[in-house]
Design a protein around this nucleic acid. Sequence first.
DNA 1: GGATCCTTCTTCTTCTTC
Length: 335
Amino acid sequence: MFILNRVLFVGGIIAPQTASLPVMHFFACPCLISPKRNSPYSSVDSERYSSLVKAVMSSRVSSQTPETLQAEDEHIYGPVVKAQMPTHTERRVPKTTHPFFDYERTPEIEEPEPETPVRIPLNRGQGRSSVPSVTRVLQQTLSPEQIFYLERWKRRMISELGEEGFKEYSRNIFRQGKHFHSALEDYMTSAATAPSETPEYPPEVQGYMESISHILEDVGAVRAIESTVQHETLNYLGIVDCVARYRGVLCVIDWKTSEKPKPFLSNTYDNPVQVAAYAGALNNDKNYKYQVENGLIVVAYKDGSPAHAHQLNSELMSEYWRAWLLRLEDFTEQK
DNA sequence: GGATCCTTCTTCTTCTTC
C-alpha cells in the first residue's frame, strides 16, 4: 500500500505527466480499438471498469491534496516546523501596537529634497550584530504552508536538475537579482548626477531594465538608495532598495526580478510585509528626517515584458505593518 | 585576513473535452 501510494505521490508531484500515462493508456486502449465502428464502450465491461476508474481516480485525487502530501512528506522527511496557521495570525493582534510613524517628526513634505540620494552603509560592527534583519525575521517566521510549498518546489527542482543543477540555478537567479540591483543603483546615481548620460547595462540585465523603463519614467526625487534603516525601539534593521517619488508620492520602492509573471500583489508573498518593515524602520530612524507612508513593489522580467508595479497606499502599509509586528513577535518568542 | 551580515530568489490543491 505504501509503495503504491509512493508511486502515485511521486507521479503526482514530481512528474504529473508520467503519472497520468498509465491511466491514459488504460482508458485510451478501448477507445482506440475502433473509434468509428460501434460504441467504443460496447465491448467493455463498463461495470467492472467503472469501479476501477473510481478506485484509480479517488486515490489519485487524494494523493494530490495538500493534507495527504503533507502526511506523506512528514512520513518521509519528518514533520515540518510547527508554527501558527496564517488564518490565526490574521486575526491576531500585535501585543505591542507600535505606531508605523513617529508623529513627533516633521512631515516629509516640509523636508527639502536632497540633490543626491543618501546611502547609509551597513555597519555591523557597532553593536549591531545582535540586531535581527528584516530578511532573517521573515525567513524564520514562514508559515507551515509556505515552508511546505517551498520545500516541495525545491524537491521538484532537484529531481529535475539534480543537486548541483539546482545550486547552479539558485546561484543564477541570485546573481541576476544582484546585477539588476546594481544596474539600478548606477541608473539612479547617474540620473541624479549626470541626467543626460544613460549608463550601459550588461547584457544580463538589459531585459530587466527594459521591463521597468515605463516605471522609471514615473520615478523621481530619489532620496535614498541601498540604504540601511534601523528601528530605534523595535530594534531590527534592513537595507531599503530605494526611497523616491513614484507619480509624485514618496515611497519605499522594492525592485524584484521574477521568472514567473506576478500581476497581483498576492503573487508577491512576503514582499509587502518586507516593504512595510523597511518603511516603519525608516520612520523610526533618526538618520532620516522624513516619514514615508507608501510603498511600491516592482516586479521586472528578463524578457523585457512590462514590469508589474504594485502600489501600497498608507492604508495597506498600516495593514502590512501589523503583519510585520506579528512576525517580529514570533521571531522574538522563538529565541 | 577571514568570517559574518544583508541582500539577491524560490511557493499558492487543479482539470476537461469540445
